[in-house]
Design a protein around this nucleic acid. Sequence first.
RNA 1: GUGGGCGUAGCUCAAUAGGUAGAGCUCCAGAUUGUGAUUCUGGCUGUCGUGGGUUCGAUUCCCAUCGCUCACCCCA
Length: 417
Amino acid sequence: MKDIRAIRGMHDILPRESNYWTALENKLFRVARQYGYQEIRFPVVEYAELFSRSIGENTDIVEKEMYLFTDRSGDRLALRPEGTACCIRAGIEHGLFYNQIQRLFYHGPMFRHERPQRGRYRQFHQFGIEAYGFMGPDIDLELMLLAQKMWQDLGVDHEVVLQINTLGNIESRLKYRQCLVEYFQRNYDVLDEDSQRRLQSNPLRILDSKNPSLREVINAAPRLFSYLDETAQRHFDKLINMLEQAGIAYVINPNLVRGLDYYNLTVFEWVIREQNGLAQNAVCAGGHYDTLVADMGGKAIPAIGFAIGMERLMLLVAKELLTVKAKVVYLVALGEQAIVTAMHIADRIRTSGDTVVLVNCNGGNLGVQLKRADRSEADIALILGTEELAKGEIMIKYLRDDRPQLSVKIDNIIDFI
RNA sequence: GUGGGCGUAGCUCAAUAGGUAGAGCUCCAGAUUGUGAUUCUGGCUGUCGUGGGUUCGAUUCCCAUCGCUCACCCCA
């Protein structure tokens, strides 16, 4: 039989790595909670229509990247490719947005059937922030400060840089889009194959092209700025002003266009400063989606949020610094009499603090057990043999320093850990 | 979806201008029968990704296929 392997682009997170993940998640959760954001959890599977309606029928995500299937009752379902649509669905369903403001965060696996590469996987993990019922631009600032706080806590604030742009409202964007299409059609021959295709699917994305030979034609293209209405202009100006005052470094990138259809007004990305050969440079991205809640059948309420690509963030952080090593005690038990007593002692030590206590299993002589103790990276070995047991004592051996080993009464062991 | 690179032991990687493979780490045992981490000695492990072709003979050459990986597309 052929070996069963993990599905392409989906990865196991093994013990050492899983410690880093838990630590990273906890750091993000902590900052989010300090800003008053509360966790929301929603299913991994939703009706496929949820995503085609919110993300946009003609986006790559919906057209060719969703994991779609029909369940046993004939419903068209999808593995969630992102969290915002799910969050809004859950919020509407439970009345969270009815004359209320909400500050929410979520995290978990997302699924997109893309060709995997560094920093991009088919099952990947996002941490997302969502704020509902806030017009901005003050909430825009809050989210950027929140993100910056996360980078600081993780020690990666010098690795990323904030890029912002505004997409205006939907009408002005449509007007702009039309002009842009006309402009690029006049320069059709200059465009590469990808951009010629984008002209049909998502013309704004041409502005974001990586092809250097298109730089000239892109730079000469009409700017969305000149199509902004007064509200959008004022929103953006205020935000810029507040960013200046708050001392957040940013770069205005007029070519920054998000891939999902639902964005309006402010959009932003935190991108990796030094690429280090990594093609995927956006580690966190988001923006306003002020019409989305209403579009999905809720009461009209403004919204803004961002999502962090956890795998990409993990590439930036110094993993070793994420975790604090707990004190580890290895309990050596010699003989059948000793093992039950050892388990009992171990439990007392665990109850008294955060110590990790490993009890030797699989037998073995003293040498073997001490070797295992060493391999387990334990700080202390406790030796419970027949001699100690007879005296009601236990031997303490320090494995990482020169303190001499000593024998103490079992009842007093906790004082020595 | 398109293109490049790579598939050899649990891990990291050698080798063979075609003659069925080795090192380090890990693991196990002993030197050291109640004292680990150092040192020394010995030992275990491979359908050389899979299928086919050429050949007396293929891990090596050719074709296909699968997998991994990187880049493009797209995106977090």
